[in-house]
């Protein structure tokens, strides 16, 4: 934000006039595009009251949107918990002093970060019934959770590692000096601080998990997007309206999560000696040399 303000001077009278003109032109363009879109929608009969009435019908919510939302949140909750476990396990593994464990964990993490989530979901979906004796009706949920856990767990493992690396060296030196082992120092001094420092990135990752549950649509998991499609597939076919409702629901939930992330970061910011910014990473697939946060990196997938 700071850099934006210095790109231009505090405007004088002429600058203010130019900005005012620019504002009017900009507003006209933005409103023009919106108006054009609305006219197009209108000409295709998208403002038919019958189509919108379905969206405020309590039964639509009772039988479609709410169960869909519940399935979305269920999958996200499982995936968040399991990805945290996976991430902590492999993140600590990447910090191990044993080079075999370190190398193995590094390989696993880099592999799952390079593979699309959807590919892992399809694999999980089909192996559920075939290899793991999971009842067929649970296979899509298993696929969604497996894909999200492996991918996001790997990202969280990287966060854990960079969080610990981002702490001042003195933290570990002090714990070693008072007689702790390296493991004790990691568990009771470094990890707690690293977790607090990485809280904002962690919650951004939870937003990614929540968004990616929508991929379950492709592997027949009955989540929010699929319910929206079902709502839209009956007369009067309000598919645009149903998609809009689903999109708004996703946006609202994700906004709330991001907002909570900001609050938490401010609240706990003083309790860690870490900066909260991930240290530069050297992983091959990350290719991170600079400032991208995890949201940039995943593209939300």
């Amino acid at each position: 934000m700071s850099a934006q303000a210095v790109l231009f001077d505090t405007p004088g009278p002429k600058g203010r006039r130019n900005i005012a003109i620019g504002n009017i032109v900009g507003t006209v363009i933005v409103l023009g595009v919106l108006a054009w879109a609305l006219v197009q929608m209108g000409s295709k009969g998208q403002f038919d009251p019958a189509k919108w009435a379905v969206m405020v019908d309590p039964e639509t919510w009772q039988f479609y949107f709410l169960p869909g939302l519940q399935n979305t949140l269920t999958a996200a909750a499982y995936a968040i918990v399991l990805a945290m476990v996976f991430g902590l396990l492999f993140g600590v593994g990447r910090l191990a002093s044993n080079s075999v464990i370190r190398g193995f964990c590094g390989l696993v993490v880099e592999f799952f970060r390079a593979v699309p989530v959807l590919i892992m979901m399809i694999a999980g979906w089909f192996s559920a019934a075939l290899l793991l004796n999971i009842p067929p009706e649970d296979a899509p949920l298993f696929g969604v959770v497996a894909g999200l856990t492996l991918y996001n767990g790997s990202v969280i493992a990287e966060l854990v590692r960079s969080g610990v690396h981002g702490l001042p060296k003195g933290q570990r030196e002090a714990s070693l000096a008072i007689g702790m082992t390296r493991g004790q120092s990691l568990r009771s001094v470094e990890l707690p601080q690293a977790l607090i420092a990485m809280l904002p990135s962690l919650i951004s990752q939870f937003v990614v998990i929540l968004k990616d549950t929508a991929l379950g649509y492709i592997i027949t998991y009955p989540e929010l997007l699929r319910s929206a499609r079902l709502v839209g597939s009956d007369a009067p076919f309000p598919i645009l309206q149903a998609m809009a409702v689903a999109a708004v629901l996703f946006i609202v939930i994700n906004f709330l999560l991001s907002w909570a992330a900001g609050r938490l970061a401010r609240r706990f910011g003083g309790r860690s000696s870490g900066s909260g910014k991930p240290a530069p990473r050297v992983g091959i697939t990350t290719g991170l040399a600079g400032t991208a946060d995890t949201r940039d990196e995943t593209g939300g997938n």
Binding site: L215, R229, I239, L240, M243, A247, F250, F255, N301
Partner: peptide
């Protein structure tokens, strides 16, 4: 802010369920 918080799958599905057949 809007696009980043929306799943890509919704945008993709809307393309062939809404933009093409409906609009």
């Amino acid at each position: 802010n809007v696009v980043r918080n929306m799943p890509l799958t919704i945008i993709m599905a809307s393309m062939i369920l809404v933009l093409w057949p409906q609009l």
